[in-house]
Design a protein around this nucleic acid. Structure first.
Lengths: 194, 194
DNA sequence: CCCTATCTGGTACGTCCGTACCATTAATTT
DNA sequence: AAATTAATGGTACGGACGTACCAGATAGGG
């Protein structure tokens, strides 16, 4: 169900944002009617009024969060100074796009991106959305490589993404996971000139 | 709690196997007291009698399934004929170790391995176990490369594993996912002589 | 103004869950 | 055989969940 009134639209949006916040904090399973309503400061019934099912709410939350991530990526592309992308800085840029900007809750934040990919395996209804967002991310990386004076094939982009993703997933089982460091190591090795 | 009687031990084992089967079918969330009991043909209370908590049951199931996978890998290593591991056959062997033998429920089966990795991110109590199993798998692959006359560094093994894992996770969002094919493509490219 | 469509929010139903309880039975030890 | 320990299985409790319901409030168009 969609809102028909400006106020209704604002309410609906508040629910989506609350759901996205829960998604970041606790993964897909954290998105529940009651939790979303409480986080948005709205009554329980508002969640069923604006969303026909929980899946719809989950989809909206994922889309919201994905768009935010893509917007961040595009901003980074726009402000990219081709003279300043020597090796290490460029690698950090790529990591920022794939893992999000570095921070305290690093492992926690990174986890979500990969939880999303895997969770999609058991939630087919998310596939179209995930495909779209994944495609845009690939294009974004392609553009960034090109702009940085390191043109690559689309195939190569996929290869590098796979390398980073694999490094991250395998780093998650460490005692104190540092997926970003693992990804950095792999990326550095793969990108060093031969 | 552990069993003290042979019959009790058998019952406990039946529960572990039922839980492992559920794990394969439906992921971690599918392991619930009632489901395990029903699958094992035992009463609900038997699950709480032999396992102090659900986490303990989950851990036992993961360990059981992991050991089975490792045993499969070791068997493949033992029967390996160094004369028969030309390019493609060898690649399939590596894929078998990392994704399990190919089959109908391919995508479904593959999903579990990656769900495990990611789920470990939110279940710290699984980390020691996962680390052990992951380490053994790495060693196994290292041995196989060596035995096959393609010696590699441990670092290179990690790199190839990451590549496969990344390819798989990214393949999961396709309309009809074929993670094995995606992994094969990446692996082939990475291993072709330069 | 009123009427109608939209929205609000409290409440309740049915289900599933983890876990606990406990009287009974089986097995083992003394 | 008696006593002690282990195992069994039916049942119940309290909580969380998705979802439905509905009386009341609100707001825009006639």
């Amino acid at each position: 169900m969609t809102a028909a009134t400006p106020k209704g639209e604002r309410r609906r949006q508040a629910l989506v944002e609350a759901a996205a916040a829960l998604l970041v904090d606790g993964g897909f399973d954290a998105i529940r009617h009651r939790a979303v309503a409480e986080r948005a400061g709205l009554p329980l019934a508002s969640t069923t009024y604006y969303f026909d099912s929980l899946d719809e709410l989950v989809t909206a939350a994922l889309e919201f969060h994905g768009n935010a991530e893509l917007a961040y990526g595009k901003a980074r592309l726009d402000e990219l100074d081709p003279r300043e992308c020597g090796g290490d800085a460029f690698i950090e840029l790529v990591l920022d796009l794939l893992l999000g900007p570095p921070g305290d809750g690093d492992a926690e934040a990174v986890l979500l991106r990969y939880e999303r990919l895997v969770a999609t395996g058991r939630r087919p209804y998310l596939r179209p959305l995930m495909r779209r967002m994944s495609g845009e991310l690939h294009s974004l990386l392609f553009d960034i490589f090109t702009r940085a004076g390191q043109p690559v094939s689309r195939e190569r982009v996929e290869e590098l993404i796979a390398l980073v993703d694999g490094a991250v997933v395998n780093a998650l089982i460490e005692i104190s996971p540092d997926p970003r460091a693992a990804a950095r190591r792999m990326l550095r090795k793969a990108m060093q000139p031969r």
